[in-house]
């Protein structure tokens, strides 16, 4: 229903979804049938095996809907790329999964539970531009931040943690730069520091927001090698990506996103001309109009 239950930001509410649909329920009541099974998406009892399950996710920023009824499953042990044009809601999808933006509606489960209870399983690499690289810390300090969750309240960082951080830096080829002030690092090096920070989180699922943006070829190679190592260890990596040329080489699965999920599945199946056209070639205009009306809360009918 349209009444809001998110008290955090009045600009963000869109409708909550009905828990059950009238149609489905009255169908069920009348025909005595069970609700129909979801063909492509995982059945509820499989949620606990799925790293991420997103159902009916809608997010709007200040009257502008960014994601609309997104459903997707992220499978274990894969490198999953999220691609789509600018403003398609790629970052928002990650942030919604990580509970960083209020959801207008929908459910997100990490291994069958809410994110709050599964934080330890999740590693996050934000976009490089979101932080102040003039901040007075060195590269090692930043990497150590990945351990803060493990260290816990009020406890200081000990040598053990710093060594773990150093080891992670070594893995991304940044050990020599551990004591460097972060503003003195190149873009690629900063990205590697962020990767190392995610690495020390020792997570099961990694979310990376454009890790390849503005990095040199060597860093790009190093990153993709690391992602492949993750996959070999049975970890799941979700990466927002821009460069369509490398999609085939880098990702096992793809989610093509443009406000809604246009296509999702194995790269070889969904990375087609037609799907790309549908993703990048404009939106459903009528849907767009209606969705914006919802976000505006406009009483005047379209």
């Amino acid at each position: 229903m349209m009444e809001s239950h998110e008290a955090t930001d009045p600009g963000v509410h869109v409708a909550d979804p009905p828990e059950f649909a009238v149609d489905a329920l009255s169908d069920a009541l009348l025909a005595g049938a069970e609700m129909s099974e979801v063909p492509a998406l995982a059945p509820p009892n499989a949620y606990e095996q799925m790293p991420v399950v997103v159902r009916d996710l809608t997010v709007a920023y200040h009257r502008k809907p960014v994601l609309w009824d997104v459903d997707c499953d992220i499978e274990k042990g894969r490198i999953i790329g999220i691609i789509g044009p600018n403003g398609a809601g790629k970052s928002t999808l990650l942030k919604a999964i990580l509970d960083l933006v209020p959801k207008a509606s929908g459910r997100i489960l990490i291994y069958g539970k809410r994110y709050r209870r599964q934080r330890r399983l999740v590693g996050y690499v934000p976009q490089r531009e979101t932080v102040d690289w003039d901040f007075p810390v060195n590269a090692l300090d930043v990497v150590t931040m990945g351990r803060y969750g493990v260290i816990g309240w009020c406890r200081p960082v000990t040598r053990k943690h710093r060594q773990a951080a150093l080891a992670a830096m070594d893995r991304v080829g940044m050990a020599d730069y551990a004591r460097r002030q972060i503003s003195q690092l190149s873009g690629g090096q900063q990205q590697r520091v962020f990767l190392a920070r995610a690495l020390v989180q020792d997570a099961d699922i990694y979310f990376m927001d454009e890790p390849f943006a503005g990095v040199d070829a060597a860093t790009e190679k190093a990153i993709i090698k690391l992602l492949q190592e993750f996959r070999e260890n049975g970890k799941t990596v979700v990466v927002i990506h821009h460069d369509l040329q490398t999609v085939r080489d880098y990702f096992d699965n793809l989610i093509l996103l443009n406000m809604r999920v246009v296509a999702a599945g194995a790269t070889r199946d969904v990375f087609t001309e037609e799907n790309l056209h549908r993703t990048y070639g404009g939106r459903l205009t009528l849907l767009d109009e209606a969705v914006q009306a919802i976000a505006r809360r406009d009483d005047s009918r379209l």
């Binding site: 942030k95 990580l98 509970d99 960083l100 709050r116 934080r119 999740v122 996050y124 934000p126 979101t130 932080v131 102040d132 901040f135 810390v137 300090d141 930043v142 931040m145 803060y148 969750g149 260290i151 309240w153 009020c154 200081p156 960082v157 920070r197």
Partner: peptide, 20 residues
């Protein structure tokens, strides 16, 4: 709260994602 404050000041999103 040194490390908590430092993380918050440096990277609010990451801090929130880690559950602080």
């Amino acid at each position: 709260l040194y490390k908590e404050f430092a993380l918050l000041c440096f990277d609010q999103n990451f801090s929130a994602a880690q559950g602080w």
